[in-house]
Nucleic acid binder design. Structure first.
Length: 196
DNA sequence: GGTAGGATGGGCT
DNA sequence: GCCCATCCTACCC
């Protein structure tokens, strides 16, 4: 598949929920590996979202989330895995989107080698810790600008349209009821004709 | 099909 | 010292 233009910073400089929703169907690219984003979660600033890392305010770790939009926030989780977020909202306002799953598009063999365990294609990057492993995204990418390579998000070409379901977020205990997770349920381009 | 438990280290109280 | 925005394996239907 061809990749379209890089998402501009204005894409990210919007309310976090809108950015989370609109990242579905976009192409996450790092070097030779890439995949279509199929699951995201919004983590809000402003204090009402107790699951957000920014809920306790500005710290050394969370400073990137308060910075300009269109940058990567990467952190270590459970001492073993790293999670990729993309910073939303205008500069100075917190808010970010966790990328929870991608559907591999290019560099499948490289992803398989990085993941180690015998892995079926659909399981290569279907989790936040798995996709960073598959795309070789680490804390060294914390703070990098994703509107300029090598780690970027692009429009898919042709543009992809999906049916999206909104649900509570996964794996949290605080603010666990907020509908801030966006996940592809069905590929629109594969939608069948009306049944007889 | 399902779930329980352990690995592992940084951030914050 | 406790809490994680996780994943994999073992084990049990």
């Amino acid at each position: 598949m061809l990749s379209g233009r890089i998402l501009p910073r204005s894409f990210y400089a919007r309310p976090t929920v809108e950015v989370a929703r609109d990242l579905i169907g976009k192409l996450l690219v790092h070097g030779p590996t890439s995949g279509i984003i199929v699951e995201t979660e919004a983590y809000l600033g402003g204090g009402d979202d107790l699951a957000a890392h920014t809920a306790r305010g500005l710290t050394q770790r969370t400073r990137v989330i308060f910075g300009p939009p269109g940058h990567a926030y990467v952190y270590l989780i459970y001492g073993m895995y790293e999670c990729l977020n993309l910073v939303a909202e205008p500069d100075g306002q917190p808010g970010c989107v966790l990328i929870r799953a991608i559907e591999p598009v290019s560099g499948l063999d490289i992803m398989r080698a990085r993941r180690g365990a015998p892995t079926r294609p659909e399981q290569l990057a279907n989790g936040p810790g798995k996709l960073t492993l598959a795309l070789a995204i680490t804390r060294r990418h914390n703070g990098v600008d994703v509107t300029r390579g090598p780690l970027v998000v692009r429009h898919a070409s042709p543009e992809r349209h999906f049916e999206i379901r909104v649900t509570p977020r996964i794996g949290i205990t605080r603010s666990a009821d907020l509908p801030l997770r966006f996940v592809v349920t069905r590929k629109a381009q594969h939608q069948s004709e009306p049944r007889p």
